[in-house]
């Protein structure tokens, strides 16, 4: 039977991913991982597709998706700001840095700005405690960050994104 494409990338790509998992018991999480690998999060349409294809109630799928911190239900921002709150960073004031980011961006931890440009998250120890407090923005490490630096960091990335847009 010829495969019908829906034309919706979230559905079609998910159908594709689910194919290799759907006949294996206990593979829901693997399928969801792989879909998140493709889109960076699990869109509603993908969750619906997984439910249909794997014959698992959608309610159960969201129980799994919201139980594990790893799964994201919304597209993350293009610029991901990770503020380290490991022990060393914490002692050296990482929470002040986090608060400054929250204020500058107008979002809470694990939220994305309405323009989907910035995503703010907290991580535990990036393994460079000598540089604490540390923030990593899309792979670029900022060391000994203070609340005062935050405005400039955000401005730098805003400018960079405006260039490439």
């Amino acid at each position: 039977m010829a495969e019908e494409k829906s034309g919706n990338k979230y559905i079609d790509e998910s159908v594709n991913v689910v194919k290799k998992w759907k006949n294996k018991r206990g593979s829901l999480i693997m399928a969801l991982h792989e879909i998140q690998g493709v889109f960076g999060y699990i869109p509603w349409e993908s969750a619906r597709t997984v439910a249909e294809q794997m014959n698992i109630p959608l309610a159960r799928i969201y129980e799994v998706l919201t139980f594990y911190n790893y799964f994201k239900l919304e597209a993350p921002g293009k610029v991901i700001i990770s503020v380290c709150d490991g022990t060393a960073c914490h002692i050296k004031g990482s929470m002040n840095v986090l608060d400054a980011f929250k204020q500058e961006l107008g979002v809470e931890e694990n939220e994305t700005t309405p323009d989907r440009l910035f995503h703010l998250q907290v991580v535990r120890c990036l393994g460079c405690c000598g540089l604490s407090p540390v923030a990593v923005v899309n792979g670029k490490t900022y060391s000994s960050v203070t609340a005062g630096d935050v405005k400039n960091i955000v401005a730098e990335w805003r400018a960079k994104e405006a260039e490439t847009a």
């Binding site: 509603w44 969750a47 109630p57 959608l58 309610a59 159960r60 969201y62 129980e63 139980f67 239900l73």
Partner: peptide, 19 residues
């Protein structure tokens, strides 16, 4: 299968899929 548990720990709540 309308109702389900969403989230975990102290944030657990009863709701439909995806809230």
């Amino acid at each position: 299968w309308a109702l389900s548990f969403l989230n975990r720990g102290i944030s657990t709540q009863i709701a439909a899929a995806g809230g």
